[in-house]
Amino acid sequence: MSRSVLTIILPLALLLQGQVGSRAETWAISAEDVSSVRVEKAARRLLLLDENGRPLRIINGIQLGGDPVGAKHFEGDERTPEGRYVIDYANPSSSYHLSLHISYPAPRDRAFAESLGASPGGQIFIHGQPNSLESGRMVGDWTDGCIALSNQEIEELWELVPDGTPIEIVN
């Protein structure tokens, strides 16, 4: 079997067997390959997708806001937003290793919160673990609405996800 056929078949076979997303994936991808990001909150996973919506990389075990069920509506609700946004800038000076900013709140989020006399909140990021944590990971869902990864995982995203990349966050 040719090498190019294996390059297509192996990731598909792994995906069907549920093996894609283990932290030991072996095929290389570049920033040019990544067209969008998808976060599946209930499945606790983040996917880097190609232009056809096929997964290039799956990161399992993401950590969310302290009250992860449902969409973010108000500042302080500890929920991670749901909807379509953009990764609009990278923050190398984050308190959480590295971070990628998500363009929440969108106008619809702001309008909903303001209709109820509340602030929608903001400062939602995909980020690593707290800089004060010497090693390992925090346990459980602990952010104020952000999406937390291991430091190694955010370093990989830092290289693969440029500003302007669309992100969809679903339950």
Rank of each mutant, 00 (worst) to 15 (best):
E32W: 00
V34C: 10
V34F: 03
V34D: 08
V34N: 08
S35A: 15
V37G: 09
V39R: 05
E40G: 08
E40Y: 11
K41G: 13
K41N: 13
K41H: 12
A42E: 15
A43Q: 14
R44A: 12
R45V: 09
L46K: 12
L47F: 11
L47M: 13
L47S: 12
L48R: 04
L49C: 11
E51F: 12
E51I: 10
N52C: 14
G53A: 11
G53V: 08
R54G: 11
P55A: 09
P55Q: 09
L56R: 13
R57H: 01
I58M: 13
I59M: 13
I59E: 14
I59Y: 13
I59A: 07
N60R: 14
N60E: 12
G61C: 06
G61A: 04
I62Q: 11
I62N: 06
Q63G: 09
L64W: 08
G65L: 02
G65I: 01
G66Q: 12
G66R: 13
D67G: 00
D67E: 04
D67S: 09
P68C: 05
P68Q: 03
P68F: 00
A71N: 14
K72M: 09
K72A: 09
F74N: 12
F74I: 09
E75Y: 05
G76D: 11
G76K: 05
E78F: 11
R79E: 10
R79T: 05
R79V: 03
T80N: 14
G83K: 03
G83E: 08
G83V: 01
Y85E: 10
Y85T: 07
V86Q: 12
V86P: 04
V86F: 07
V86W: 07
I87F: 03
D88W: 10
D88E: 07
D88H: 12
A90R: 06
P92M: 01
S93K: 05
S95M: 02
S95D: 02
S95Q: 07
Y96N: 09
H97L: 00
H97A: 07
L98V: 00
S99Y: 03
I102T: 04
I102F: 01
P105V: 12
P105A: 15
A106V: 02
A106R: 11
R108G: 14
R108T: 13
F112S: 11
A113H: 04
E114K: 10
E114C: 07
E114I: 01
L116P: 06
G117Y: 01
S119C: 09
P120A: 05
P120Y: 01
P120V: 03
G121I: 02
G122E: 04
G122S: 05
G122H: 02
Q123L: 14
Q123D: 15
F125H: 05
G128E: 09
G128K: 03
Q129G: 02
P130T: 02
P130Y: 06
P130E: 07
N131I: 02
N131K: 10
N131C: 04
S132R: 11
L133A: 02
S135I: 00
R137M: 07
